[in-house]
Design a protein around this nucleic acid. Structure first.
Lengths: 221, 221
DNA sequence: TCATTCGTGAGACTAAAGTCACAGACGTAT
DNA sequence: ATACGTCTGTGACTTTAGTCTCACGAATGA
């Protein structure tokens, strides 16, 4: 775990050498295979995590087995800070959707880091603010938008902003995965895709969804 | 704005005198009449706010005029910290649901406060963690629960925990208000009340809802 | 190469939620 | 006391969403 590796994390890129040394002193590495659970909701929290590489989904499960994905954490993202700062149990489940390497920081380590390095505390305040904004939008989406609108919005967010009009997606997912993210059943995602295709917003190639017209997608919001 | 008044705010009760003086130096008072808007979504943020007394609802509005209440801020609560820390615009609207007195702190004042008083930064980290946990639950409710279940959950949360079984609610609201909180139409709240009454969970007196059986409410979750 | 698993399509059907319009009761203001 | 506004009930109806089941093609693993 070098300074360069830490500085690759947006949260840490502005920290001075002493703060980075502090993180090095408190962080431990975790390797996760695809499909493996990192932690489950309701358990006492062990640590918060920073993703070095790979992807971890943070999700809630309903009593009848449905999943609502809250977030997919990728390289550079943090997750599970909530129980480290508020002292409660894990608020959700975490599972690797692809093989991942993470750094973990336990509560006591984090307590020392934010006390000894105010810049770290301020960095986390900004990160939390960003996450709260994201959640207000997620509540808005679930409350106001139809399934097709939520799917269209997700595709717009996933558009690969390559400066050429973004016809491809940054990443494809299965219809079941997309259903978990936008909060619906996989059949409904298929129907939404059909409706969006009919409106000329998307089409499909052998890799998956291709955006034909952002404007048409925006009209479906 | 005395130390006693500030210390009445849970966020500030553990601060030392110098931190409290810092807040006094940066806070300004705002008075709001019932029904008046404090700010609207998308505008540049003026300040974050602490409620001295009264109630302010924080809400999103849909294009067709529906409201999703994100939170009702009461005495001792903070709101609108998100844009102060992440630099973006107001994430939602705020309106007094009863006459209120608030303290506002602008971005620059907050920046100085968290830099000069790490205890303030740490207090806000804890507060943000609590809000994030609350929002993960709200997403879970909207995604997994039926309207009746969301109404039952709300009534359980509003039960006046007086140590006698909590038959009364801490506060009554109209069916329209409750609909905005749980994310539905007012007619659906009426139907949910009817279903809960039929199950022996609630009844009505001249003030409004009375919880007859918490256990029965819990069974309706 | 073959067997197994996964992902998807499809359509019939059920369930849940929302809309609409109007009337009556209650609350508020004059 | 009266007029006006707000809240609520109601039920028919529409819309949206979810469930279920099965078949087929693609992907994966042995």
């Amino acid at each position: 775990m070098s300074f360069e590796q830490l500085k690759a994390i947006p949260y840490f890129q502005d920290l001075d050498a002493r703060a980075l040394e502090g993180i090095q002193a408190h962080a431990f590495e975790v390797r996760l295979q695809k499909g493996h659970m990192l932690f489950t909701e309701g358990e006492p929290a062990q640590a918060m995590y920073v993703v070095r590489f790979g992807k971890v989904k943070i999700f809630k499960l309903s009593p009848d087995g449905r999943e609502q994905v809250l977030r997919i954490a990728e390289a550079g993202d943090c997750f599970n800070e909530v129980p480290i700062f508020d002292g409660g149990p894990n608020p959700a489940n975490a599972q690797a959707v692809e093989s991942a390497s993470l750094w973990g920081i336990r509560r006591e380590g984090m307590r020392r880091l934010v006390e000894e390095h105010p810049a770290i505390a301020i960095g986390f305040l900004k990160a939390f603010a960003g996450k709260l904004r994201y959640f207000t939008r997620k509540v808005e989406d679930l409350s106001f938008r139809s399934v097709t609108s939520r799917v269209a919005k997700h595709l717009l967010e996933m558009a690969d902003d390559d400066g050429k009009g973004g016809l491809r997606l940054k990443r494809q997912s299965t219809q079941q995965e997309l259903a978990s993210v936008v909060g619906t059943a996989r059949e409904m995602v298929g129907r939404a895709f059909k409706a969006l295709e009919k409106e000329g917003a998307i089409t499909f190639d052998r890799h998956g969804v291709v955006i034909v017209s952002r404007a048409a997608l925006i009209r479906m919001l």
